[in-house]
Design a protein around this nucleic acid. Structure first.
Length: 563
RNA sequence: AGCCUCAUAGUGUAAUGGUAACACCCCGGAUUUUGAUUCCGUUAUUCUAGGUUCGAAUCCUAGUGAGGCUACCA
């Protein structure tokens, strides 16, 4: 269902194609390596689509993409997140097959590599405190100086490391460091920490270990162990690549993966950092991690964004090293583009006003068959009852319409979508001047036929039958922030939250909508795309719909302009 | 301040030393039983300065701007 025509080779795909062509690799193995410490968001979706996409595209050479949980820090990780991440990857349409891994399953190997480095004189146990280490590391312009512990012999280091491993030290008492270069202009190479002591329970290994490897040490080894050929990560790891390569060079690994960095996704009108997302949830600015306004995968899913639209979006934005910010309008375009093709049409009236059909004896219709999709006859149709009273949208009637207004007004004609043309004969107002009732007559014989000679009918409006229609809660979602770049807000990102990001209203919906199952995506004709809420929607009892995205509305733009 | 990386219409990307293009957005028009869709069209682009070359968005140098790096996070 995804649009393959969008795919064009980016610099990473070119590298891979070259490696395949030159015979450097016979196949391609990528991996998506989340830390299970939070929920996935659309930035992760970019990485997922990249890594799994490359594997899919290279199927002829048996390419694969692994799902690997980078769970090397027991203090931050929970198995609850493992399940939600698996669910999100699956929902996005990707399959890791047999290749589900946990970094924690490699703890023994990491340990053995550490011992290997110690024996080679390339790692040592350091008793310096974190504070002392920081001071001796130097800074951006001045070289660091080595800890006195670096002079320890191999046997002593071996013994101390074993003592670390078997719980002989308290947390923070010492660490294992690589012996590289304290004067390197790349801070990552100033004798980085390999192992720290954590007397913590791990979600996978329980209490088997009390030393845990650092990302920089573990990650290249994980990749190499899994025979990953191309290890794709975001730009902030550029300076880590020399260290990545150093571990590959100095440890007994079975393969040589290559790290390639690309720019992470930034989107306008939202925030993407885990910390800020967490704050929005904790402080109650949103209802939870799956709030439809959040850029989380679960939020987008609940919002009714199709997985295919997110995949198309990922292709459309490309992959580069340029630190860019993508206009969220591009995501919304992909959502509309997909839903326009796939979503069945339904009718709902968001701001209802009653309309009475007066000449029912002249046109005694009781049922109307309405097409489910204007461009796709295969989508079939549905039968909607129609009585003498219907709801129409308040803004589809004007007492004194301007010449460019095509809808209903006194004496004017309009077509009821899928039904007959009607003519407004009268209307009533209350004391405040608010229209309370519209009276209209049906033009007999106009269902499925053009307007009779001499009748001006330039629009079709949606409607809901009063007798058979139902009430529904409709949640009108809009952008969470009112400025393009909330991260740059002087008073903090929460100061630029959009106060109108959610408007909840009661709407009138046609019978088929009330009966829909949760997660049903459709277009409310002339309004936008909506989905029945996966959590709160109760079919036929208490329907709840979320707006995914509004339809483009050139009339609103035109009408809003001064003449 | 040192090191690394990046810079093409408003936004995101393509052009791999040989005519700067595609998508989104915006604007206009045609069609339309959704003021949607579809179709057609308009506006607008190589950060700056030098250099190499017959020829530079592309290669080199410098500058400018942006991002990253001084966790026992990932």
């Amino acid at each position: 269902m995804t649009d393959d025509s969008i795919t064009k080779p980016d610099f990473i795909r070119e590298i891979i194609a070259d490696d395949l062509a030159s015979g450097k690799h016979a196949t391609v193995i990528t991996r998506f390596p989340p830390e299970p410490n939070g929920y996935l968001h659309i930035g992760h979706a970019k990485s997922i689509c990249l890594n799994f996409g490359i594997a899919l595209e290279n199927r002829p050479v048996a390419a694969k993409c692994h799902l690997r949980f980078d769970d090397t820090n027991p203090e931050k990780e929970e198995s609850e997140y493992v399940e939600s991440i698996k669910q999100d990857v699956k929902w996005l349409g990707f399959d890791w097959g047999e290749d589900l891994y946990f970094a924690s399953d490699y703890f023994q190997f990491f340990h053995d590599c550490a011992v290997h480095l110690i024996k080679a004189g390339k790692a040592y146990v350091d008793d310096d405190s974190a504070e002392e280490m920081r001071q001796k590391r130097g800074n951006l312009t001045t070289p660091g100086s080595r800890s006195a512990c670096a002079e320890r012999g191999v046997e002593e280091n071996l013994a101390l490391f074993e003592k670390m491993r078997f719980g002989g030290f308290k947390e923070g008492e010492c660490v294992l460091r690589a012996r590289i270069d304290m004067a390197s202009p790349n801070m990552n190479l100033r004798d980085p920490v390999l192992y720290r002591i954590m007397h913590a329970h791990h979600h996978n290994t329980g209490d088997n270990w009390c030393i845990y490897p650092m990302y920089d040490f573990a990650h290249p080894l994980e990749d190499a162990l899994e025979h990953v050929t191309h290890s794709l990560c975001t730009l902030e790891f550029e300076n880590h690549r020399p260290l990545y390569d150093w571990f590959i060079d100095h440890c007994p690994v079975p393969s040589r993966p290559r790290q390639i960095e690309f720019a992470r996704l930034n989107l306008t009108y939202t925030v993407m950092s885990k910390r800020k997302l967490l704050q929005l949830v904790r402080d109650g600015h949103v209802s939870g991690w799956d709030d439809p306004r959040l850029p989380t995968i679960s939020g987008l899913r609940r919002r009714g964004y199709p997985a295919a639209a997110i995949r198309d979006f990922s292709k459309r934005i490309g992959v580069t090293k340029f630190n860019s910010t993508t206009d969220v309008a591009l995501l919304e375009f992909e959502v509309r583009d997909f839903l326009n093709r796939e979503a069945p049409r339904r009718m709902a009236v968001l701001d209802p006003v009653r309309l009475t059909l007066e000449n029912r004896s002249a046109e005694p219709l009781t049922l109307i068959e309405v097409a489910n999709h204007p461009q796709n006859p295969e989508a079939g149709g549905r039968v909607i009852p129609i009585g003498s009273e219907i709801w129409i949208e308040r803004e589809d009637f004007m007492e004194d319409p301007p010449k460019k207004f095509h809808r209903l007004g006194p004496g004017r004609h309009v077509r009821l979508r899928g039904g007959p043309i009607i003519r407004c004969t009268a209307f009533e107002k209350d004391a405040d001047g608010q229209v309370t009732l519209i009276r209209a007559e049906i033009l007999p014989g106009t269902i499925g036929n053009d307007a009779p000679e001499g009748v001006q009918c330039k629009a079709a409006i949606h409607w809901v039958d009063v007798a058979s229609g139902a009430d529904a809660e409709v949640r009108l979602y809009d952008r969470l922030f009112s400025v393009e770049n909330p991260d740059a807000a002087e008073a903090g990102f929460t100061s630029v939250l959009n106060p109108d990001s959610l408007k909840t209203i009661t709407a009138k919906i046609e019978p088929a909508l009330a009966a829909a199952e949760p997660g049903f995506c459709c277009q409310f004709e002339r309004i936008g795309y909506f989905v029945s809420d996966s959590k709160d929607h109760r079919p036929s009892v208490s329907p709840v719909f979320n707006r995914s995205v509004a339809l483009k509305d050139s009339w609103a733009r035109q009408a809003g302009r001064p003449d």
